[in-house]
Simulated scan of single mutants.
Amino acid sequence: MTELSVVLGDITAQRVDVIVNAANNAMRGGGGVDGAIHAAGGPAVLQDCIARFPDGLATGDAGWTTAGDLPARWVVHTVGPDWNAGQRDRVQLQSCYRRALEVADELGAQSIAFPLISAGVYGWPKADAIDAAIGTILSTPTAVEAARIVALDESTHRQVQEALDARGTG
């Protein structure tokens, strides 16, 4: 079973096999986590996105690129649903976590760091985003041994830790 934890920090600084990027459909960089990963990873990440995803990526799907200058080995990009644009199917959000773990397995990754997908500029209600993340990561069969959710602020960190504690996994 995958060990799941939460850390307070910057996802671009995580020393894991895979960093998960909350990407947009175009796969050409953007704001929030996506912008931070592209900025820290350097031009190699965007070049690999263009080569691997010429037509972008569907919501709920995932694929990998190099990590460029990041301390991780790979970036797994996944496109979360945009609550603010009316994309409110929780199955799509859960698919992001499941597909990211499947891609990590294809790569042979042992460790992975997730942002809280769709809970930023896409506006997914935070409590539900946390529940979907934890539930899906813990219920997805995977060879990944260590997964972490990276919280950028103390409030989110506390909320994720409380949710983990409530499940008896924190």
Results as ranks from 00 to 15, higher is better:
A72K: 05
A22T: 06
G56V: 05
A119C: 15
A67Q: 06
P54W: 11
G123H: 08
N84V: 12
T59G: 10
T78S: 05
H77K: 08
R28P: 03
A67W: 08
G42V: 10
G41E: 12
A109L: 01
S111E: 02
W124I: 06
H77Q: 09
T78Y: 11
D105S: 10
D128M: 13
G68T: 03
I50V: 15
L46H: 09
A72S: 15
P125C: 10
V91E: 14
G56Q: 02
H38R: 12
V18Y: 01
D17K: 04
I19Q: 10
V103D: 04
G60T: 08
V103A: 10
G108S: 07
L93G: 00
Q14Y: 04
S95W: 09
W74P: 04
G35D: 09
P115D: 11
G31K: 12
G41V: 10
A127R: 14
P71M: 15
A22E: 02
G108E: 06
I130W: 03
D61Y: 00
R90H: 15
A132W: 04
N84S: 12
V75D: 05
L93A: 02
A39W: 13
L70Q: 03
R15L: 08
E102R: 08
C96K: 06
A36S: 14
A44I: 07
D131W: 00
L93V: 05
D48T: 04
G31C: 14
G32K: 02
V45E: 01
W83L: 00
R90S: 13
M27I: 10
P115E: 01
I37C: 07
A127P: 08
Q14S: 11
A39D: 15
H38E: 09
